[in-house]
């Protein structure tokens, strides 16, 4: 065999160029930008400084927003897991026509723009919206929903659910349905069989679903932007404001880099846990 050693490099080069051009270069530029000085009168300067990072990490305003982002993303992930698991299980036990119909119902929302769905939720949750109207009929006073963390979480869960259901459903598909029957025949109740036999085997799907949902929620922009209002900011909306309102691009870049690093650390740690578990349980 006399195959040129350059062939593999040539083959990966289109992908590598695309990746470098669309991911690496902007990322490097952002990192550089985050170290540039900024002056409100003269704009971006030529010198380098760590001031932006220092300010972000010492200012309670920014830390509050980071903390909220983490909290809401975790809450969304947890709710998606709690709702998505039974949903996927029921889906996998459905008969022929219904299964594909309901799978479509679950994936369907992905076909509608996030912005459109966010507006939909703001109409539902507003002070004169459908939810408050319904509460009024039952005799409960109007509840402030819009521009609260509750509204953000509700909408995020709605949008992220398919990303949880699909991996769990895929894991369930791989499961031998007779394994559950075997547990029953050995004396396990339906619930015990689910907990001891089905759950551990779909946990891989659950963990990877959580990873996707957490990552997307922590960096969500449209939902917190439209349902959180001006004051309830999350990381992505904060970056946007720094760029577009304050025009302090280096500060925005520094925030973006911190969010990216935090997300990376959390997801990598989580992924390690997932893999360790997968290797132990399923091989």
């Amino acid at each position: 065999m006399n195959r040129s050693s350059t062939t593999p490099w040539l083959l990966v080069s289109p992908g590598a160029v695309l990746f470098a051009g669309l991911v690496i270069v902007p990322l490097v530029l952002t990192v550089i930008l985050s170290f540039l000085t900024y002056n409100y009168d003269t704009g971006i300067g030529d010198g380098y400084t760590l001031a932006h990072y220092g300010q972000i990490l010492s200012d309670g305003y920014y830390l509050d927003i980071f903390w909220r982002t983490l909290r809401l993303a975790l809450l969304t992930t947890l709710l998606c897991a709690l709702i998505g698991m039974p949903e996927a299980y029921i889906l996998s036990r459905m008969r022929k026509p219904w299964r594909s119909i309901f799978l479509l119902v679950i994936i369907g929302p992905l076909l509608v723009s996030v912005v459109v769905r966010a507006f939909g939720w703001s109409m539902l949750l507003g002070s004169t919206g459908l939810v408050n109207a319904a509460l009024g009929i039952v005799g409960l006073g109007p509840v402030k929903l819009l521009y609260t963390e509750t509204a953000i979480v509700i909408a995020l869960v709605h949008i992220m659910l398919p990303f949880m259901v699909i991996p769990v459903w895929t894991a369930l598909q791989k499961l031998d349905p007779m394994v559950e029957a075997a547990a029953w025949s050995l004396g396990a109740s339906r619930f015990t069989a689910l907990r001891r036999v089905v759950m551990p085997q779909v946990s891989i799907g659950l963990l990877s679903g959580s990873l996707i949902v957490f990552g997307l929620s922590a960096s969500a922009f449209a939902i917190p932007g439209l349902l959180g209002g001006r004051r309830l900011k999350m990381a992505a909306t904060l970056v946007y404001d720094e760029y577009m309102q304050e025009l302090n691009w280096p500060m925005g870049a520094a925030i973006a880099i911190i969010v990216l690093l935090a997300n990376l650390v959390i997801m990598l740690a989580y992924n390690r846990a997932v893999e360790a578990r997968a290797r132990r349980a399923l091989g």
């Binding site: 007779m178 394994v179 075997a182 551990p200």
Partner: peptide, 18 residues
């Protein structure tokens, strides 16, 4: 089935893989 107490061996064996 969980009250009958019968032993069942399935065609696929249906062992608990984890």
């Amino acid at each position: 089935p969980n009250r009958r107490g019968l032993g069942v061996v399935f065609q696929s064996y249906a062992l608990f893989p984890h």
